[in-house]
Simulated scan of single mutants.
Amino acid sequence: MIPELFVTKDGQTINIDAFKGLNFTGLTTQSPQSITNYQSNKIRDGSVQNGPILFGSRTVTADFYFDGEDVYDYKLACQDIWRLLFSREPITLRESQMPGLNMEVIAKPFDVTRLNWHEMTFSVEFDMPSGYRHSLVKSDRLQFIYDEELSQIGMNLPNGEDLAYRFKQTRFKVYNPSDVVIDPYWQKHDLDIIIKGQGTPMITNLTNNYGIALNRALTANDMLVWNGVRPLLNGTTCERATNHGHIQLEKGWNDISVTGLTNIDITFSFPFLYL
Rank of each mutant, 00 (worst) to 15 (best):
W253L: 10
M223Y: 02
I195Y: 08
A241R: 10
T36F: 03
D80S: 10
Y210H: 14
Q97N: 12
T262I: 09
I2K: 13
K9C: 07
D45P: 04
A107Y: 00
G228W: 03
N227G: 06
S139P: 13
G56H: 10
S57W: 01
E89T: 14
K42P: 03
G56L: 08
G26W: 02
T219D: 07
F172V: 06
E148D: 07
S40G: 13
T36P: 03
I194S: 05
G154V: 07
W186D: 14
P177C: 09
D162N: 01
V105G: 01
T267K: 07
E250F: 09
Y146V: 05
I182P: 00
P231D: 03
G154Q: 04
I106M: 09
S139E: 09
A18C: 08
F126R: 00
N234V: 09
T25E: 01
G26Y: 06
K251R: 14
I106H: 01
T92D: 04
G46S: 05
D255K: 03
D162T: 08
V124K: 01
L163P: 11
V105A: 06
N23T: 14
A77P: 00
E69S: 14
N208T: 10
G199K: 05
N243Q: 11
T113A: 12
N50L: 11
Q30T: 06
I195F: 08
L273N: 01
A77G: 04
G26P: 07
S135P: 08
D192N: 15
C78H: 04
K168M: 12
Q187K: 15
Q169Y: 01
T267Y: 02
R166L: 02
L93V: 11
Q33T: 09
T36W: 03
L85W: 06
L93H: 05
S123D: 01
D162A: 12
D17Q: 13
Y165M: 06
L115D: 14
Q97Y: 08
R216D: 12
N37E: 14
K188T: 10
S57G: 05
P184I: 08
T121M: 05
L142P: 11
L136W: 02
Y210V: 04
R171E: 13
I91Q: 09
G131D: 03
I14E: 14
R58S: 07
R216W: 01
Q143K: 15
Q12C: 11
I2T: 06
M1G: 06
Y210R: 08
M1L: 11
F172L: 07
F55R: 08
A18W: 05
A241I: 08
D63A: 14
L275A: 11
L54V: 00
F172C: 09
T121L: 05
V229M: 10
H189Q: 06
T61A: 12
T29V: 13
T59Q: 10
